[in-house]
Design a protein around this nucleic acid. Sequence first.
DNA 1: AGCACGCCGACT
DNA 2: GTCGGCGTGCTC
Length: 798
Amino acid sequence: MIAEVIVDVAAHPIDRPFDYVVPERFRPLIEPGMRVKVPFGPRKVLGFVTGTKSESDMQQSKLKPIHELMDLVPVLNKEMLQLADWMKDETLCFEIDALQVMIPSALRAKYEKRFVLTGELTELAEPLQPYFQRKPFLRAQDAVELFGLLKTELDKGTITAETDISQKTEVKKARMVTIESSLEKLEAIEIRANARQQLKLMEFMKSHAGSTIESADLQKQSGTTLQTVTALLDKGAGTLQVTETYRSPESLADIKEKAPLSLTLEQQTAFAAVRDALGTSKTFLLHGVTGSGKTEIYLQTIDRVLKEGEEAVMLVPEISLTPQMTLRFKERFGDQVAVLHSGLSAGEKYDEWRRIQRGEVKVAVGARSAVFAPFRNLGLIILDEEHESSYKQDDAPRYHARDVALWRSRYYNCPVILGSATPSLESYARAQKGVYELLTLESRAKNQPLPEVRIVDMREELRNGNRSMFSVELAEAIREKLEKKEQIVLFLNKRGYSSFVLCRDCGTVGECPHCDISLTYHRSKEHMKCHYCGFEAQVPDICPECGSEHIRFFGTGTQKVEEEIAKLFPGARTLRMDVDTTRQKGAHERILTAFGEGKADILLGTQMIAKGLDFPNITLVGVLSADTTLHLPDFRASEKTFQLLTQVSGRAGRDVLPGTVYVQSYTPEHYAITLAKNQNYEPFYTQEMTTRRQNGYPPYFYVVNIQFTHEDLMTAGDYADQTVRFLQNNLSPGTVIIGPSASLVARVNDRYRYQCLIKYKKEPRLTETLHQLIRIHRAEWIKRGATLSIDKNPSTVM
DNA sequence: AGCACGCCGACT
DNA sequence: GTCGGCGTGCTC
């Protein structure tokens, strides 16, 4: 029997199955989808079995046997293996990347080099002997200073080097103690009168006779230690069992079940459409203004799916995955929900994943990677905020959760709901063409009016001599709300806002010596760090260029605004929420809770406050500068701006009090701004589609971004030039190739970066050409030290 | 990717 | 004479 194995090595020549002999003892057990340990060249690696067969095309003598089975139950089922094949073709990734992304990181291999004693301890050089005393091996990590000595031993053959493979996190085991139930038996146990600890424990055991308790709890509650417990168990006071258990991140104890809300007529219609499509692979685009109650439709549809005995996956962007949000699911579905979010430890994620795989839960809520939730009877997939670019992974495998969802929907014949207040142009265009069914929610669920949006022309302000970040109008509105004790959200729509260090005399900015980007100043550690390569440096006392002592830190935009608020509105309590203040775990939530409890008047923040902020007392939202995203060199800049403005506006007046929104801009006439005013999605869509058609961008054209890197500027440029010529010669005349040009950050980690863009409407030769490009890369460029990365349907082309 | 093999310069 | 530099080639 032969097994085909995809080996855990992400490299071009390795990206295919390797055949292994299945030893007799594994034959009844082995199945596709299991992880195995296999010899690979001179080392051992982890691999995934993708298939078995009776004959191999390889010479029998070249085949090696599988070393070990890592699983008794496959970690990937047939569906996942098929999905990986599809992803490999679709995203041009290595098959191993596609397989790895589907399992929790806890199951990925941990490789640890170590030296193993082959003979007797006494044969070793004297100084080494203590290291091998307790265990017959020594981790290479713990022995860096001994490498010289170890080398001689390796040559002598008294030790060998090997790599230990284990999984990163193991199944959590609980030591359960079952206390003897018969009081007589407990009484009969003899304990010396001076064994105070044992006597204490015995008292506890007598009062809990017959019960089962975790050993750690037993120790804690009785005030004793493991030694005492073990001693008494040895005397027959109970039995010890080791069972598998879950790490439970939080308890459901305080969560009360909540009944469904009643649906408005609009919601009812949308709900009915999806309900009637259960059991088919139909895709819906649920377009509803902010606050129109999309979530309630999701909840009720999921409920219906569960009643059919099927399972549901609910995807949300990572930043929306707040406790507030997941609470709603737990209130409705109780312990049937698994939540997968970045705040969980690897072990906790693994446990949630196992609960799904074992069929113990029916609903999975999570960000991008939750689209791989290992359900076997999927009845519905929902992508909320489907336009969010975080659904596209920006390193290999470069998959889009939406595409994976649609693939799984075809596999299971289940519907997909794509929900958004501001759908991506791609999705809306598909809905217009009838590929998706469009469901529209035009009114807000609580029937509140949309907030009034006022656009402020900042050029006018400048002309009137106002150089502050606050227009007269906005400042006035803030003062008024402060007086009324209502809450204000200020949004600094700025990207790349991080702080930097600047010499005020010569203008020199602290830059990374390895990347063409300025260093980010970290106030907490008083140092500067490169966010691309990790380089760190101390803030200099004098400018390295001109020797001036006038070094200044430019805070995040938000810090500067915070100072200005303090000046303009003395007494206003401000909470700042940006990368600096939310770096700590849970900080995000703490700030929001504090604001919700009215502990501040003004919440000032960046992107991250655009979502899920749902507090009744917010009546004023100010967007300080709508221009920053608008003028980014990316074809989606307008779309992003429109989405952001719409979303931010949606934060105001969500309850009884009406809301007002101020949008400040230096280009107030831009359609992305004027049309966001009334959440006018349709006109924006029409206008933006015209622009996209004129410039040949999605959804009219498909885009592929190709990036080249090399440590030598000229070589990187040559590679890009040659590739562009190659593409021009091999693709159809209707296809446009843009570039090559230097990437926006032209150098990262001492490597120069070039890129080019393929735009095509119909390109039958695309797949073949890209594969050929990869072949050329393998044959000619890898050995020259170049890298190539191909991103189909990139989320950004910067 | 990672590891071994192999073929040339600076040390005991 | 040996140690060790990194080019090249293979991995069922």
